[in-house]
Amino acid sequence: MQDKIIQKAKELLSGGAVQVVIGYGQGTGDRVRAIFIQKPEDAGRLIMDGRCVQNLAGYLMKHEVRALGRAAIVARMPVLRSIAQLMYEEQFKDSDVAVIGISDANELVDLPDLNALKEYVRANPLKLTPEEQAEVDRLDAMTREERWAFWMEETSKCIKCYACRASCPMCYCARCTVEVNQPQWISVPSHDLGNLEWHIMRAMHLAGRCVNCGECTRACPVGIPLRLLNQRIIADIADNFGEEEDYALAAFKPDDKEDFIR
């Protein structure tokens, strides 16, 4: 797999199709990290194994990365989903990005353009794994008081470093709601209310958009299981809207069962 990625990266770079390949390389100790390959001869530094889970899609929106030129991105399923969602939100043009896709079965997927990517993502809808569903169910089984206590305990650790936001490809707003101050919707200080408001707001803004990559949870320096909030919403959306929608909360259907929108 890794060799195929390296080969593909070399081709893309030497053919001039892209100027940079965003992928995974050796990090500190046994960590991997995002690397940005600009020369075909450096493509050998690319790594692909079980450690390569960071959602790289956010880098496609970063000023300094965009300044390098057209990018190819090593993309496992969550990255592919992120790109599809970002396209849906008109953050990319088809010509902006090339994709080195990798399936959940760890096979290279041929995705010649982003339309092919969209089709591929549509054919592989987002589903929680049984383990993830079990964790959502565990929280659901709690009483309201227990669940409240659970989240208050977890969010009390929050230091408002916004690593959850910064690591999330879907959090690309030029001015985040917490930074909108006229009026100040969300409390900035990291007190109980401020922390709770922040995480509820963020979960709501990701409703129907979250790709369940888990980056927020991995990024959180104090170990808050943030993805549980989003997974619960994913489960709700699947229950209420089915799984085939691109973006359940923005889609309109004349036969919508709710009548407030008509």
Binding site: R33, A34, I35, F36, G58, Y59, K62, E64, V65, K160, C161, Y162, A163, R165, A166, S167, A219, P221
Partner: peptide, 8 residues
């Protein structure tokens, strides 16, 4: 290049 601009 890989810094995501959080405050961690």
């Amino acid at each position: 290049l890989r810094c995501i601009g959080c405050g961690t």
